[in-house]
Design a protein around this nucleic acid. Structure first.
Length: 276
DNA sequence: CGGCAAACCTGCGAGC
DNA sequence: TGCTCGCAGGTTTGCC
């Protein structure tokens, strides 16, 4: 499901529910997601109070009142859902359950089980294997055209693939890469290292704008994404090209239809007239 | 190191 | 109605 805007939406929904509250019980209803869960997950989190929830790329960082941090990745289909009594029966894909002192229950539900959870030591979170090789945050202060140009330097593959690589920029996925390239007028096939100067400026600006707009809309709800309170994001209505193969290219007079191609096994949507 | 395909797993919509 | 196929917002692994 989730790229950076969806994870940020989840973070903002969970924060008021969990921050400052104590976990009275944590339950792993199966031993693994995409990877094995820590065997002591429940034991180390039960009784802890959540101090703060942060986000790094597509990961949630749940900081506790002890030197331990829960790292969670939603994979493709993961959700964090908040329930209050009376609690509904478990769904078969409710894998990890967090019971809060006030009776609220947060469930990590993930049908495809591409999600991840692990515990990190608080003083070495950035060195955790999940986070260690991530590139910069695209909404961070240091992310601009020149910085993006340097990240793309020497990369001979297509710009689409480079932007999907979390080591280059952390948090983009298929939707927002397609949308940002459209907004910047850059072909998804363009060699990454040629995106420098004014083109890199345009692309960095486009990435920033599309992410901010998507966060403001509560993310994009295609199939799985819900805010923790169950609401839908609505940025999917603002897609220019993603999922719009065959539709007229929006917002310009090129009169071309949106095309689809496959790069690295993923669909790319673009306008061949506008994107060069 | 770069780039790509496949694998991981389940669900859903389209087409027959 | 029911089956098969293709596709899905991500990451990792293994192969060239």
């Amino acid at each position: 499901m989730p790229e950076l805007p969806e994870v940020e939406t989840v973070r903002r929904g969970l924060a008021p529910v969990l921050e400052g509250r104590r976990l009275v019980k944590v339950t792993a209803r199966r031993p693994d997601l995409r990877k094995p869960l820590p065997v002591d997950l429940a034991q180390r989190l039960t009784g802890r109070t959540i101090v703060r929830i942060d986000r790094r790329a597509k990961y949630l960082l749940v900081r506790m009142d002890a030197p331990v941090v829960l790292l969670a990745h939603l994979g493709m289909s993961g959700r964090m859902l908040v329930f209050r009594p009376p609690l509904p029966p478990f769904d078969r894909h409710d894998h990890v359950i967090f019971d809060v002192e006030d009776g609220t229950q947060v469930r990590f539900r993930d049908p495809r089980r591409f999600g991840l959870m692990d515990l990190a030591e608080a003083d070495a979170v950035d060195e955790h294997p999940f986070l260690a090789s991530l590139g910069p945050e695209p909404l961070g202060e240091k992310f601009d055209g020149p910085a993006l140009g340097r990240l793309l330097d020497g990369r001979n593959g297509p710009i689409k693939a480079a932007l999907m690589d979390q080591k280059v920029v952390a948090g983009l996925g298929n939707i927002y890469v397609c949308e940002a390239l459209f907004m910047a007028g850059l072909s998804p096939r363009r060699k990454a290292s040629t995106v420098r100067g004014a083109r890199a400026d345009r692309l960095a600006t486009a990435i920033h704008q599309v992410l901010e707009a998507a966060i403001a809309a509560g993310g994009s709800s295609l199939r799985d994404h819900r805010t923790p309170s169950g609401e839908l994001g609505y940025f999917q209505h603002s897609f220019s090209v993603y999922g719009r193969e065959g539709e007229p290219c929006p917002g310009c007079d090129c009169a071309a239809a949106v095309k689809r191609l496959v790069q690295s096994g993923r669909s790319t949507f673009y306008c061949s007239a506008r994107q060069r």
